[in-house]
Design a protein around this nucleic acid. Sequence first.
DNA 1: ACCTTTCGTAAAGAGCGTGGACTAATTAAC
DNA 2: GTTAATTAGTCCACGCTCTTTACGAAAGGT
Lengths: 401, 401
Amino acid sequence: MTKSANAPVRHATMRERNLAVVLEHIARHQPVTRARLAELTGFTKTTVSNLVALLESAGLVRGGAPVHEGERGRPGVGVSVHGDGAAGLGLEVNVDYLAACVIDLGKQVRYRHVVSSDNRGREPGAVLDALSALAAEAVSAVAGQGLTVAGAAVALPGLLDREDGVVRHAPNLGWTDVPVTGAPGLDAALPAEYDNEANLAALGELWFGGGTRLGDFVHVSGEIGIGAGIVVDRRVFRGAHGFAGELGHLVAEPAGPPCSCGGRGCLEQIAGQEAILRAAGLPVTRPAAGPGSPVGTLVDRLNSGDGPALHAVDRAGRALGGALASVVNLIDPDTIVLGGVFSPLAEWVRPPLQAVLSEGSGSLRRGVPPVEVSGLAEGAAVLGAAGLVVERVIADPALLL
Amino acid sequence: MTKSANAPVRHATMRERNLAVVLEHIARHQPVTRARLAELTGFTKTTVSNLVALLESAGLVRGGAPVHEGERGRPGVGVSVHGDGAAGLGLEVNVDYLAACVIDLGKQVRYRHVVSSDNRGREPGAVLDALSALAAEAVSAVAGQGLTVAGAAVALPGLLDREDGVVRHAPNLGWTDVPVTGAPGLDAALPAEYDNEANLAALGELWFGGGTRLGDFVHVSGEIGIGAGIVVDRRVFRGAHGFAGELGHLVAEPAGPPCSCGGRGCLEQIAGQEAILRAAGLPVTRPAAGPGSPVGTLVDRLNSGDGPALHAVDRAGRALGGALASVVNLIDPDTIVLGGVFSPLAEWVRPPLQAVLSEGSGSLRRGVPPVEVSGLAEGAAVLGAAGLVVERVIADPALLL
DNA sequence: ACCTTTCGTAAAGAGCGTGGACTAATTAAC
DNA sequence: GTTAATTAGTCCACGCTCTTTACGAAAGGT
């Protein structure tokens, strides 16, 4: 499972950790002098110099222009993350599109590409091949900018077993027990990692959205199904098998419609995108996003005060509020973030949601956590995937010599 | 919050960690030779010898009788945790009793004392004074055995803010916003830590019950209210404010009876001890445990096939199963452990519980986590509290020079 | 008895952060 | 315009901790 924290510490371990400490501070404070790094980290100036020299020779950081901080004294040289060195590739498979995204070590987006394609029921191998092609394209495109992709992370809309590298169940793709590791163009060329779309979207929110201000948060990412990414101490909480945060199958209405999971009245059947559209009397077709998409139409109807639409969204909001009350009681986050479909629908979903949410659990704690709306919407998962790769490099720069 | 993992590593840090590594292995493999420790940890024999010498001089471990492991060769000396050195004191405040318990570094119970007292509505200061007296008694009692109490942990039946050291809400004690740190006899004499009864009961289960075999687990500890302790990677998951695992206020029956928390149909109102007793037509009085207690009577009635009793417990089991389905979807544990009142009632509670549980979430994953029954029942929280102190010492032996 | 195996320790060596002194580059003051 | 003050970064000796190699100690096998 995770590293057992029971590992002996040697000199090499010490170096690795300290390189990471320095690199993290450089990344967070961007152009920063060695002297200031010494203050920030508590190291001596000597040690900082040594560590920075190593990072520099690994191509991870770069000394730039002089920085004058105080009034008097010699100016220091600003050390920054090397923007044109290593980079992270994020990939996403979703029901109606494939996406790729490359960010540099400074978390700047350097490349982005989305191709729409109907992956519902398509042969998994074909989808993965298309994804590999997209990845190869991204790698060569950013190579022109001087970037070297250090690794990839892939967001998938389903439950997956990260140890075996198998997608257990992706209902909207129609995948069951599909092995994903060892895809030719990916693992062969790049170290790739696979994770749930909801988890990566939450990380996207952490790194490119609300940031650390959110504290420990739960990011609700409804696309087709409803999932949640749980971020605790700036890391994703995955549970014992990586299935944590399956919000979509909490029971919202015990007497509600049956669900593919075998239960009845699952949240997904009431607040899922398709369920809302259906209840609003709208067709459930592609394209799923953008103007002219079902969600866009739904928003139009809501704006014009359409009764069935308003009712559908209100019902979804109340159901989601109930599920989030459970989340608050069990996970106790600082913040709740609404992403995915709920982001454009927030104006209508949030009031009933908050009413139900605060009804249940408010009096025991100091009130209910604030419910925020993500500004990232669809792009969150790819961003999070790319960010994950970069974050891995920053957390263990020793891997790159 | 927690240690930011962003701390520089120096030589001293290295030593501290490595002392802990060696001590943990000694504790886990009890009489173990230096040579075997070298294999287990990956250190050289020299380093092990040095570290063991330090631990020995701190009084934490002791070299004992020769141990002959292989067929040939010089026998090694078995190093064990020093049973008569440092010890941990666990304390518990509950509605109808106060308890104290001391365990030594080898996790052997060396002292145990429970005094029944009706703390419901009693002045918090008086309760804490009584607890301090109990603690002082325990400390002097084990001093006679050569034990030195290194710290204390206190289990409290309510939500508490661990940063401020304030009990926010303990409905069954009638406490609201009661400061607990700085209690004269405790913090003055001993470093004390305070935590939720449910969390400590889960740790008790981890260290004195099912152990690591359980993996990541959720321990349901119903006494008066219903709480759950969530153990992930051998540590308690507390959430952002320490309120995680508040199982009792998940909504079990949306149209159910109102709850003191402001909601309706909370699990506690259906599967809480008092709710079950009331539904079974039994009085809700002290003493809460032992023969002649309401629960004992309930078990008798269940054994004799009493209708209302069976119905009450069946309903509780179904409600608990529904709540645990939410837990499984959100937390994804390896195992679920039934403790507290549910331990003696398991025979009747478990079948309906498992029926409801597996109905909801089984098909998405590889089945539902096994539901086990704790063998510790009431004592779990005090044991966990005492264990926590010992565990702290083992995790950072450098604190004791 | 003697060889083999295994345990524990001792002495020398290597890696890495520390501490203090030293050089470099800038501003403030006279 | 020179000098003092201040801050940045480097150099070198040192100390701490793990490793390597070597050696003596205590058993069993022959």
